[in-house]
Design a protein around this nucleic acid. Sequence first.
DNA 1: TTGTAGGCGTTATCAA
DNA 2: TTGATAACGCCTACAA
Lengths: 338, 338
Amino acid sequence: MVTMRDIAREAGVSQATVSYVLHNDPSISKPTRDKVLRVAQRLNYSINVSARTLRSGRTNAIGLVLQDLHNPYSTQVADAISVYARRRGYQTIIQQTFYEGDAEAEILQHIVSSMCDGVIFSPSKLNVREIMAQLNGKPSVLLSPVCENHSYDTMLVACEQGIFTTTSYLLSRGCRRPLFYCSRYADFDDIRDSADSKWQRVAGFQRALLRNGITPEPWQFLPERHWNRRSARETIVEAVRTGLDFDSVVCINDESAIGVLRGLADCGVRVPQDVSVVGFDGIEEGECCVPSLTTFAMDFDDFARKAVDALIDRINGDDAAPHAIIANSRLVVRESTR
Amino acid sequence: MVTMRDIAREAGVSQATVSYVLHNDPSISKPTRDKVLRVAQRLNYSINVSARTLRSGRTNAIGLVLQDLHNPYSTQVADAISVYARRRGYQTIIQQTFYEGDAEAEILQHIVSSMCDGVIFSPSKLNVREIMAQLNGKPSVLLSPVCENHSYDTMLVACEQGIFTTTSYLLSRGCRRPLFYCSRYADFDDIRDSADSKWQRVAGFQRALLRNGITPEPWQFLPERHWNRRSARETIVEAVRTGLDFDSVVCINDESAIGVLRGLADCGVRVPQDVSVVGFDGIEEGECCVPSLTTFAMDFDDFARKAVDALIDRINGDDAAPHAIIANSRLVVRESTR
DNA sequence: TTGTAGGCGTTATCAA
DNA sequence: TTGATAACGCCTACAA
């Protein structure tokens, strides 16, 4: 490893001078500058980030801590944030917690102590108290459906409203017997004010039904499963096999919706002629599947912009009260609804 | 920020003792140990990674430098590598170069100087000489279709053989007029030994045709476009509109194949009854699309295991001659072929 | 315009 | 069993 000291020795200057040159300090004369730069080039110098960080306290990187990168939604979030952060002059360091509380704490600790100037963090197991303990004052933006705190800026997703919108659209197109994938039935009054992402979606579904004079009934709720293609596919196939009478499926996310589309194809059910399907998220895959997916699509670029801007403001010392941030989103009508 | 010195003061021991305790050094007595740990807990201490790295030279992290995270193939690679690296006790730091030579060099420099003990790197713009200069001796595994060097372990993809396999399968099912998405026509003899990933695939296509007594002709080659859904969709729609007579499409990757499926659906062409489609990669999306995709599927877990194991061996001082590594892969027959 | 020197938080050697 | 102490590579007053 070649250090500034090596360059200094080689160029016949002090190590401090090298540092100044590499920081474009104007007080260094052109000849010295050139000489140092030439040597640095020749020795193929690259700065030691640990040393710089240790000394300066700045990393010029932001941490993005997600649960995993396995699902398209997370991937698109990660992609959009990386791209925008880069435009703002920051490296993005992506880390996954794999839904393990230990990993979460460990990663936050590492990140807190160094590696990055701020964190965009999607919590799973940790509660706000624990998060605060780990984050310990480091600038942060939370990606969370719930805004159970007033300690951090939080990117919210309009779950209730989104599912209300997709369900309402379905009903406006004449559907009367929608299924919801995936949750067990719960009484509307028990969940209407829930802070939980899933229950918010269930509540949106029910509110749309009620608004249209339909009373939600337990048969409409498909059992709780993973929010992924495979679970959704298996579940909907099972529903068709058991002879469930439905004319549409409201899905908790796009990935599930794509599994539902697949499962209906397995059963020879035509979409949208026999059954309509709506998703939630707006992942790219939904544009290109057959049939393409009607969904409540988030604007990922807007999401990334707002999250990163908020974080960088905090890094730069903004101490306004933490606030909730919502990205733009809208209903996108495609082929999966009639 | 709370440091070891703070703990030491609070616990009435030296800072060195704190370090020993936090490293589970057996020479520290139980009472001292407990006292220090209690204080550390209370002060919510977390280690400063920069300082540790600067001093010890070890990070316990590996860097994964990809071109982008926008396509499912890269995402699945990143996912699999992160998961396996974690099992081997390493954090994975994912970085994207966005196909910009500058970013590539910059990221490698940062990573070289610190942040991680080794790098899994997918080069785009940089040539081997430049890579070597940036990497500067840091343990590395290259993800690259070409093995133009004997300086690094390199994960190879069986491009020629893979496309040969998918094309041969198509022909064995009675197809006689396959299209190739996407490349311009090139004479077989000019490309059969190419080191380039794309030309290897084209060569595989042609070799399969020749083996079956079919002479490749320019009309079979769809113009060069991006290897993504949208380009493929537009291209195949155009091909159908112009009345091109074909009975199958060999795609350069799965993402393109999914775009082709979509484009054919746009035109009312049935798959596989009218046209068969094969992909290359084995991304998850191919399992669940309609129709599901016949493809030459890589075993991503095997890929990750081999890449990470090789890298960790190097980190641990293995100095065997660099070698080429190929992950398991196999033809997966699904619904998109007749 | 350039050099000297101290310290960022840790690890690790050596001595006590 | 524990404590001094000297780096690791870089940044930045301050001095020259």
